[in-house]
């Protein structure tokens, strides 16, 4: 089998797996939120407990009328969902699900992930600008503000395990955690702080409450996607959840030891998925218990607290690594 065909095949499988995961992660979140709010959640579509609800939602969105506002910038408006979706899906290319199981285990995997996931802002801004709607425009402005502010702490937090492992390759980072009870979170002080900073920055990068000022439906109705309907709306939702899952995967790889865990080797992907789901649920838990904060407060938290903190953390990590390498070993 030529490498081209092989990669196309793997890409196809991963793409569909991602889309499948997105649909069922929405169900997971809805059920989880329902438990928190003393509700039941989706129940009637599919037995038991609404297992067909995501499928029904997807079908409904596909069959809805596609409305393009007359005053919209048609090219920008129509391209925005794609420009948003592609980077969100593309980051999965570099995620290894088990040793050797993944599309491409790049030797600059972390860098690729961070760079590509930052591209989603282009799609966001296109959507907000192209809709020619004031709510969407304000949301796009907020998006640029927020993503720029939170990408830096996000990157710095993600760099802590990179420095500890001495590599940007995700599989190497995972293997480096084998000595730490299988996870960097157990690295004294640094690991825990970095994980907390990573989770906070993740919330902002994923636009989740308390940092969901882009969507902010009590002020901006639906933010940058207020004019989107039908399949374009579905694509934006798909991209958002794909980004969320990708970030959960990244957290599981960088801090929780990826596929490392007790049991035979085939359990690796299962452990990995479980850890990613834990990260996802922590983020969801925060989402459904906090109120949203204001745009100026969000920026203040990033620039005055999170950015200096992660920067100091990264420098401390580098110091520890440097001392470790010179002081023996």
């Amino acid at each position: 089998m030529s490498p081209l065909v092989y990669h196309a095949l793997v890409g196809f499988v991963v793409l569909n797996a991602v889309i499948g995961m997105v649909t069922y992660v929405t169900l997971l979140e809805r059920k989880f939120a329902a438990r928190m709010q003393s509700r039941i959640g989706p129940y009637y579509v599919g037995w038991p407990h609404g297992w067909l609800q995501p499928i029904a939602d997807a079908l409904k969105l596909m069959m809805k009328e596609d409305i393009v506002p007359r005053a919209a910038d048609r090219w920008v408006y129509n391209l925005a969902p794609l420009a948003f979706l592609v980077p969100c899906i593309l980051v999965f290319a570099t995620i290894p699900f088990a040793p050797g199981l993944g599309v491409a285990d790049l030797n600059i995997g972390v860098l690729f992930f961070l760079a590509v996931s930052a591209l989603e802002i282009v799609g966001l801004f296109m959507g907000g600008w192209g809709s020619n709607n004031k709510y969407a425009l304000l949301s796009a402005m907020r998006a640029v503000n927020q993503i720029i502010s939170y990408d830096l702490p996000f990157i710095f937090a993600a760099l802590v395990p990179v420095v500890l492992a001495g590599s940007l390759q995700l599989s190497v980072i995972v293997e480096a955690q084998r000595a730490m009870y299988g996870a960097f979170v157990f690295y004294p002080v640094l690991g825990q702080l970095a994980f907390v900073a990573f989770l906070v920055a993740t919330l902002a990068a994923e636009n989740r409450v308390p940092f969901d000022i882009l969507e902010a439906e009590s002020e901006l109705v639906a933010g940058f996607r207020v004019e989107y309907s039908g399949m374009k709306f579905a694509l934006i939702q798909l991209g958002e959840y794909a980004h969320m899952i990708a970030t959960s995967f990244l957290g599981a790889l960088l801090f929780l030891g990826g596929w490392l865990g007790p049991g035979p080797a085939w359990m690796g992907p299962v452990w990995f998925l479980l850890k990613a789901v834990v990260v996802f649920l922590v983020v969801t838990w925060v989402r459904w218990s906090f109120v949203r904060i204001r745009v100026d407060q969000i920026l203040a938290i990033s620039w005055k607290l999170l950015l200096p903190a992660t920067l100091v953390l990264l420098m401390a990590t580098a110091l520890v690594v440097a001392l470790r390498s010179t002081g023996g070993a």
Binding site: R208, V209, P210, D212, E217, S289, F290, V291, R292
Partner: peptide, 13 residues
């Protein structure tokens, strides 16, 4: 609280 927290967030809870 829903005004501040969003219908898809802690406010809804």
């Amino acid at each position: 609280c829903m005004d501040m927290g969003g219908a898809l967030g802690g406010g809804a809870t």
